[in-house]
Amino acid sequence: MNEVLARVPIDPSTMAETPAALDASPESDPDRLRWFPKGTHITIRGLTKTFDDVVLYKDFDLDIPKGKVVSVFGPNGCGKSTLINMISGILEFDSGQILFDGKTARETRIGYVFQNYREAVFPWSRAIDNIRYPLQFLGLSKAERDARVEELLTSFDVKIDLNRYPYELSGGQQQLVSIMRALVVDPEVLFLDEPFSALDYEMTLFLRDRLQKVLTEREVTTLLVSHDLDEAVTLADEILLLTKKPTQVAERLQFNASRPRTPETTLTDEFIAVKSRSLEIFQREVRK
């Protein structure tokens, strides 16, 4: 029993708080004694994943806080995308358990934005039908579905003609469609896999701005993979730094600057401090 408890890492920032017990009723459930910090949304326990004999994750534990943006950053090949793919349920893992407030990924409303928007949107459907697509699986009435779309379009203040097909839109506009498709279901968790890396800077700033607005309004638990440290820090409430494989958590840094964060945020002392610390840890891990 002690062994189980010992394996669960306690986030230093919340260590002062009383850990909340997972309220599982069956006495036979071995997980009922596991602990996680208050305000946790996603619990990852004993995650193990190997690719062709290469151990990528071994007994990996992690707690992800509710309603926060967590940026995942780490050395090349440490499995950042693999991690969010496993959490989001699109990639199988060998063993371990991932739960969202006790639910599985399949039982959770998930939004996922892929890096490669060209191969993520459905080119045979008009942009607006792409955005509507996931709503049909929520069991809403037509009026509710229309209201959801309408609300989202208003908060994004979209200027493009959504009756066009994706291939008639620019790359940034396609990614915008992709982001709206992820958000229209009002996701409990949003996954962003390098969503801006293929876009120009102007479009990136625009999309970041809209995305932040919606995420702050709705307090969506968000996991962002980014290879751009500036971006990772700018958008994050917490930066999750990973080690080389077999991957473990190297460090978790908090970044509490007020929102909305703009390019000016990157000029503040707080930002520079967090970024320097992240870089330091990153370089330490790369050299290991």
Binding site: R106, Y133, F137
Partner: peptide, 8 residues
């Protein structure tokens, strides 16, 4: 995968 993650 996109459709799967959307709950299809």
């Amino acid at each position: 995968l996109a459709a799967k993650v959307m709950g299809a």
